[in-house]
């Protein structure tokens, strides 16, 4: 961001809270690696020394949903697994984003069969779809950058009503 250069000049910057929050959010997206099948291996490959997801501030793969704000669904989601994916999604704190990695999660992919959900957008709101079977690690990084772009456009007040909404749901 060139922050250092600015700070040495005058010692201060002016910006909006929205911008700084969005900037902080986007540069430290913590993914929840929902590795289900083959795509998970490529997701790990994205974290390995060659592709190095750490360059984007997302190397902190947490296996607990409570500490994450991005869910990467990597792999074929079956009906049985859909319940689990959904429950984990519900456990993530707001605001949260979802990447549907691979053909399977986007549309069922090559599995037109009785037990495969034909696209996870039937039960989850998806932000970025990634094409490929499996998508190459570069493609996943691209998806991550798209998410970052999306996050950088958010304003803090976009998420204001989420908590009351949630409370209402719980009360119901």
């Amino acid at each position: 961001m060139g922050l250092e250069a600015k700070l040495t000049q005058d010692g201060f910057i002016t910006t909006t809270i929205d911008a700084i929050v969005a900037w902080a959010r986007k540069s430290s997206v913590w993914p929840m690696p929902m590795g289900i099948s083959c795509c998970a291996i490529e997701m790990i490959a994205a974290a390995d020394p060659k592709y190095d997801i750490a360059r984007f501030g997302s190397e902190v793969m947490r296996f607990t949903p409570r500490q994450c704000d991005l869910m990467i669904v990597a792999g074929t989601v079956t009906y049985k697994m859909a319940q689990v994916v959904r429950r984990i999604y519900d456990q993530m704190p707001d605001p949260k984003w979802v990447i549907a990695m691979g053909a399977c999660t986007s549309s069922g992919g090559m599995y037109r069969s009785y037990n495969v959900v034909q696209g996870i957008d039937q039960f989850l709101p998806v932000d970025v779809y990634t094409a490929g079977c499996p998508p190459r690690p570069e493609n996943l990084l691209n998806a991550l950058m798209t998410i970052q772009e999306k996050i950088s456009k958010t304003r803090a007040r976009d998420f204001q009503d989420i908590i009351p909404q949630k409370l209402e749901l719980i009360n119901k």
């Binding site: 859909a82 069969s113 009785y114 039937q122 709101p125």
Partner: peptide, 23 residues
């Protein structure tokens, strides 16, 4: 029983429920 020949490959609709989409 899915592998019986009278079971369609695409399955029987509604036999396996999905969670609702949020919102």
């Amino acid at each position: 029983h899915p592998l019986r020949k009278d079971f369609p490959v695409l399955g029987i609709p509604e036999s396996l429920p999905l969670p609702q989409k949020p919102e």
